[in-house]
Structure formats: C-alpha cells, structure tokens
Design a protein around this nucleic acid. Structure first.
Lengths: 146, 146
DNA sequence: CTTCATGCAAAACATTTGCAGCTGG
DNA sequence: CCAGCTGCAAATGTTTTGCATGAAG
C-alpha cells in the first residue's frame, strides 16, 4: 500500500481499462500524483510537468486531475482559502495534519474511524459513503522557528 | 449552549467589546448566523438580509462574515467545489454530516474526539489547535427519493 | 483514420479590495 | 463630529469551457 510504483501502475491500468488515452502529459501528471507525498496543488503539478513538456497548458492539468478524481484515483482536499490539494498516493479517506504556518500536509497513522462512522449511521440514518478528518496545527519545524 | 438568543447576545457583546459598530446590516447578518442551523452560504445570508435592507451589498456581507470569523464567532466550512458555508450557532470545532445530494448539513452528537487529538499530538509532535471532521453521505430524505 | 486530448483564450465563479460618501456612537 | 462602515465597481485567484488543431491507438 502506498508503494509509488504500484500506485502508478494501478492508475494507468484504470485509465486504459476505461479507454482513456495515455498521453505524455497525462503520464506526467499521473506519475506526480502517484509518487508525491506533498499533496500538491494543480499549480505545483503544472510547474513540474512543464519541466518535461514546456508547452503543457494549465487547462490540461485541470482536466487530467478532474478525470482522475472521477475515476476515484485521487483524493481532493479543498480549503476555504487557497487552492485544492491532491493525493494520488492514498486515494481513500484518511486523516491529515495541516500546518497552518507552512501549509505542509502529512498523513498520521491513527486508530480506525470505523466506530465513529458506525455511530454516525446509527444516530442519523444517513448512508455514509465518505468522510474527511483534518487536524490543523503547527508542525515541529515551525514551532522551532518561533 | 446553542441557544440562539444567547449566541446573538454573545456575538454582539464581542463586537461591542472590540469597538466594532453595530450597524443595521451587521445586526442582520449576526442574527442570521446566530440563529440558523442551515450552515448558510454568504449568498444565502445576502438574500436574507436584502429582504430587510434592499440596498445591502454582497461585499458588506463578505466583510462582516470575515470579521466574525476573525473574532472566532463563526465556523467556516470550505469545500472543493461551491462556496463556503458558515455556522454561528456552534463556533467551535464539531463534526458535520453533509448530504451529497441536497447539500443539507447537520450536526450529529458524537463521542469526543479528544483521544484522537491526543493521539495525533503524541505521534506527530504537531501542536494541534483545531480540527475538522465531516461525513459525506445521503440523508434519509434523499434515500427515500431514490 | 477517427476519435479523443491538447492548448489557447475567454468565461465563470467566489472572494477581495479601493475608494468616495454616509452614519453610528 | 469623524473613525469606521457601506456600496459600488474593478481586481484577483481558481477552476471551467469552447473550439480549432494535433496526436494516440
């Protein structure tokens, strides 16, 4: 799980199975999303892809990211201010810790949330299909910098 | 807690203490945020306020909402697509359940998240100061409508 | 070959900002 | 009064869309 190369292959297989073309631009975006743990923005991905394909347009990155999101191959994290961030490494719901200073996002290993999900279902009658848990705080690095 | 009139008074007191003026427009916005459980958007608030003050501008609503957010009197819920939603009724972190069909948001009563927060602090060294927990699903009403 | 993807530019939104004039305390 | 609001309009930042050209399979 979360083996970068395995993820890459999974994502490519999904694209091929659904008859989407593997273009050089798509391959570049998929690689970045499968391998990075930085939870990049679309802009971040764009800058990376441009190194190899300078004529790539931002719209193409958006389109590819949307496609992967629809295929369930990446997780989208939206925030009130600033742009969305994406995780192709672990495309299933999992908690995040976000540093409010440097905006770094990491994935902590936490106890299961299943009991809480069950509790929600029992108490509300909602059919729960997804969740999101974020902690906001200050990372050790930023604590040291005062 | 979550008594609408008490919340309204708390919010007005905070504004007065910090020497902000209570204008008719602000009062209207604060009333809506203190009393509604619908987690309204800025646009929702704007429509409501215009009923009483037709010349109100959207910018004023945005400014008032930002001010209340800075004062810690409302909770801001951002989403990848669509606009932010606000909760003035319970301005402290608490879980939400969001219907992905009708976009209704309710507040379930759940077990405490403190143990999870402690676990995060212990495992990551982050100084946690806030969190957000959302469940996404289909509400009983929408389940019935197929 | 033919269909689908790309790249460009324009559009669509949500939100913020600058500023002249108004008004709450 | 007069500092601080309001309302307008213009600016910003992100994401989406339309369409002609180009390339994957």
């Amino acid at each position: 799980m979360a083996d970068p190369d395995a993820r890459l292959q999974q994502m490519l297989t999904k694209l091929r199975d659904r008859k989407f073309r593997i273009t050089p631009q798509r391959l570049a975006v998929v690689k970045i999303l499968a391998q990075s743990k930085e939870h990049p923005t679309v802009e971040n991905i764009y800058e990376q892809v441009k190194k190899d394909f300078p004529t790539t347009s931002l719209a193409t990155i958006y389109k590819t990211v949307s496609l992967l999101k629809e295929l369930g191959e990446i997780l989208e994290l939206g925030f009130p201010e600033g742009s969305n961030r994406y995780d192709g490494n672990k495309p299933y719901p999992h908690p995040h810790i976000i540093c409010i200073r440097c905006k770094k996002i990491i994935d902590p290993d936490l106890m299961e949330l299943q009991p809480l999900t069950d509790e929600v279902t029992r108490k509300t009658g909602y059919k729960i299909i997804d969740h999101r848990l974020d902690f906001f705080g200050i990372c050790p690095d930023c604590q040291q910098k005062g």
